[in-house]
């Protein structure tokens, strides 16, 4: 009787309605936001994120950084905190920031990140930063910046002549851009690495959604990129580094609880499976 009871429990576990697991994930994500003061330790900052922070931190004032906003609304939870943190860091260091995009929805989200940072640090559009907007053509557009940025982006997003903007003075090719960070939820960073770094020697970092991050680890090992910001965790690390906790850090407690729940269900599922297999074979 006891054996049958145990077996039926294992079988019931293996046939558990998956909606119970969904409910567990929902609770794991929602509850940390409802419990006041709930916070799980976010962990150490990875050397990959630290490296991008150190590179920007090491640039002298008025250096030029370019952020490529190649993502759309579907990846806002991971990419926008990253973009905002990078813009805030660059502007807090008095760097000139150029925003570009080869993804059609990028300029609007990039523009929001630039404006949010500019408002905080009192920076002026066209003088301290500019949003050059979207350029179709992908790789061809990235390659074009290597010969003359004004042929690729003759005007900025607002229709102003790019060449006449104060922020663009002295900027013509990648030689005049000190650091590029390709922020993307698409394979665009591969093109940035190929046509900005390999073809013109531009110094680069990459920020991507977590689902894409493993694709870029080989480029870290070959030193083709100096650093990699990996999804929401990377965004939280960057917010931690610049001491500006926001949506990235806020989300990491829920992320940790959800991961614990998933690990627990994987372990329980495996134990149940091996018990069931041992009994059916025995």
């Amino acid at each position: 009787m006891e054996d049958t009871g145990t077996r039926s429990f294992v079988e019931r576990l293996l046939q558990l309605d998956r909606r119970w697991i969904f409910l567990g994930i929902a609770l794991a994500v929602v509850v940390p936001f409802l419990v006041p003061g709930f916070k799980m330790r976010s962990g150490v900052v990875s050397p990959r994120t630290q490296s991008i922070y150190d590179t920007i931190n090491g640039l002298p004032a008025q250096s030029v950084v370019m952020f490529a906003f190649d993502y759309g609304p579907a990846s806002i939870p991971e990419m926008q905190p990253m973009a905002v943190a990078l813009c805030k860091h660059a502007m807090s260091r008095d760097l000139r920031v150029i925003g570009v995009a080869i993804h059609p929805q990028g300029p609007l989200l990039g523009g929001q990140a630039l404006r949010e940072a500019a408002e905080e640090y009192g920076k002026q559009d066209g003088v301290d930063y500019v949003n050059l907007g979207y350029k179709p053509g992908g790789a061809a557009a990235i390659k074009g910046i290597g010969t003359n940025i004004y042929k690729v982006f003759p005007t900025d997003l607002s229709g102003r002549n790019s060449a006449t903007l104060a922020v663009m003075q002295g900027v013509r090719t990648y030689d005049n851009i000190d650091f590029i960070v390709a922020l993307s939820s698409t394979p665009a960073p591969f093109s940035w690495i190929a046509f900005a770094h390999e073809a013109y020697g531009a110094k680069m970092g990459v920020g991507v959604t977590a689902v894409m991050a493993t694709d870029f680890y080989p480029y870290l090992q070959t030193d083709q990129i100096v650093g990699l910001i990996n999804g929401l965790k990377g965004a939280a690390e960057y917010e931690d580094l610049i001491r500006h906790p926001s949506y990235g850090m806020l989300g990491m407690s829920a992320q940790s609880v959800a991961h614990l729940w998933i690990i627990l269900t994987v372990i329980i599922g495996n134990i149940a499976f091996f018990m069931w297999r041992a009994r059916t074979r025995g």
Binding site: I25, A26, V29, A74, S75, P77, E78, T209, A210, V211, G231, L232, K233, G251, A254, Q255, A258, H259
Partner: peptide, 8 residues
């Protein structure tokens, strides 16, 4: 992590 981030 990416999918949970979207829910978050």
């Amino acid at each position: 992590m990416a999918r949970i981030s979207l829910l978050i």
